[in-house]
Design a protein around this nucleic acid. Structure first.
Length: 440
RNA sequence: GGCGCCGUGCCCAAGUGGUUAAGGGAACGGUCUGCAAAACCGUCAUUCAGCGGUUCGAAUCCGCUCGGCGCCUCCA
């Protein structure tokens, strides 16, 4: 999305929230088992919620909070599945009318034989799927076991709607077809998702939508590979997963999490490790340092030791990064290019003119990759220019330390530095005196 | 059983037929400093899991072997 916008494209981005309960066994062949949300509600954690709607809302908010912390752009629309049940019912009705779906005593099912190219996205063919069918629930009423549910009849379900087939709830693929069409039309340009969704979910979306509209559903797809964690598969059952909030609570920089996740291209399997996160932190800091230098130099007069070619170098670095992103979102190369620019900014002193060029560069890098937000913009309130630490202000501590240094009392000077550091204040001695920065 | 991915320096990783195999981290050496921190400079793979083949030429194509992993259950 950032790449498209950086290219000047007009984009409409829809990211949905699935707030209707999927079933524990809603694989392609059937939709059976217990409702996931109902199950969650019955768990210990679920006791705090009045009903499934409250539970869905709670996790929706948590999700949005993590989303923002990772500096992800906000989509144009965030539809909820529960707000589009009407469209889902209409689509299902039409699919029945046109012979792509049929009603059984338990629900409405899509007939995959009515869509000969079913499986074209994942490479699964109808016949191979039949061979691969494992111990799924057999439903005698379905024409074949690979047919998937569009509607489930169930008047006991916690979330239920009235339909031409009585009370029940939608199958777990139809929501996306309905929402995609509602906001993006019959054919969409780019559809993404996790690799686990390629089959069956996206395959079923294609079948439903194309059978309904008679047009191609999506012209481009990309599937993000799963993460491993510390060399192992990340799974709830094994408990070896990190959440964004856990990592942030442990003091890791959310931007470093973002950077680490971007350091491997989306299509490659990635092993997320704490080491990787630590490696990322320094580079995120490097961009913050760029902003500090720019802030200090903006508006100053010409400096003979500034690099007159800086603007040109930055232009090249940015072009390289943009080209890399255009090459199937090659984030590894894009980051490498963008770092070249950061190093160029830090190499030589800035003056008013080069600081302006650097600002423009940093803003473009932020737009493209989201790893270099301007610090002032990120924090709403302006931090105190000379905060109180313990009994004294930072400037007073620095003066005291300077006196100690003059008296060659380095033990005292170092202890002042260390206690400030413990409060998140990092001391930097420069030829022009002592500066400090607030470490996050 | 079906579909698919990966193996590049101590670690992460780009490169997928042709000048010196990007970049980051770590480490080491240096500039600066009372010492640090930050920043910068330098060093760090004649070699790309192994074997065989195609080619004037391969990390890149083909085959085999070894090793790791994913989807088709919960998971994101």
């Amino acid at each position: 999305m950032r790449t498209a916008k950086s290219l000047g494209w007009q984009v409409k981005w829809v990211s949905n929230i699935t707030d209707v309960g999927h079933l524990t066994q809603d694989d392609f062949a059937d939709a059976g088992g217990e409702d996931r949300m109902e199950k969650a509600l019955k768990s210990k954690e679920g006791e705090q919620f009045a009903n499934v709607w409250a539970l869905a809302e709670f996790y929706t908010q948590a999700y949005l909070e993590d989303w923002r912390r990772l500096n992800l752009l906000e989509p144009d629309v965030r539809p909820k599945a529960t707000q589009h049940v009407r469209e889902q019912i209409v689509m299902t009705q039409e699919l029945v009318k046109s012979g792509h779906a049929y009603e059984t005593p338990t629900g409405v099912y899509f007939d995959i034989d009515s869509k000969p190219d079913y499986g074209k996205l994942s490479g699964n063919t109808r016949d191979k799927l039949l061979e691969g069918v494992r111990d799924v629930v057999l439903d005698e009423n379905k024409r074949q076991q690979s047919d998937f549910a569009l509607w489930k009849k169930d008047d006991k379900h916690l979330m239920q709607w009235y339909s031409p087939w009585g009370w029940g709830f939608p199958g777990w693929h139809i929501e996306c077809s309905a929402m995609a069409r509602a906001y993006l039309g019959d054919t969409i340009d780019l559809h993404s998702g996790g690799e686990d969704n390629a089959f069956p979910h996206h395959e079923c979306e294609i079948a439903q939508s194309e059978s309904f509209t008679g047009k191609p559903f999506a012209t481009h797809w990309f599937h993000v590979r799963f993460l491993q964690v510390e060399g192992e598969k990340m799974a709830k059952s094994s408990g070896n997963f990190y959440t964004v909030r856990d990592l942030v609570d442990q003091g890791y920089d959310p931007l470093a999490i973002r950077y680490a996740l971007m350091s491997v291209p989306y299509g490659k399997p990635m092993n997320f490790t704490i080491q990787l996160l630590k490696d990322a932190t320094g580079n995120v800091e490097r961009f913050r340092e760029c902003w500090r230098r720019v802030g200090a130099a903006i508006g100053t007069g010409p400096n003979p030791s500034t690099n007159p070619d800086l603007a040109t170098h930055l232009g090249q670095a940015y072009s390289g990064a943009l080209a890399a992103m255009c090459d199937d979102l090659n984030t590894s190369v894009a980051i490498a290019k963008v770092l070249e620019g950061a190093k160029a900014i830090l190499r030589d002193p800035l003056d008013g003119s080069t600081a302006r060029a650097a600002t423009a560069y940093l803003e473009k890098v932020e737009s493209l990759l989201g790893i270099a937000p301007e610090p002032r913009v990120a924090g709403a309130e302006e931090p105190s220019p000379d905060p109180l630490v313990g009994t004294k202000r930072v400037s007073q501590w620095i003066n005291e330390r300077a006196l100690a240094k003059q008296a060659k009392d380095f033990a005292l000077a170092d202890s002042i530095r260390e206690s400030l550091f413990a409060e998140g204040i990092e001391i930097r001695d420069t030829p022009d005196g002592t500066d400090w920065i607030r470490k996050r």
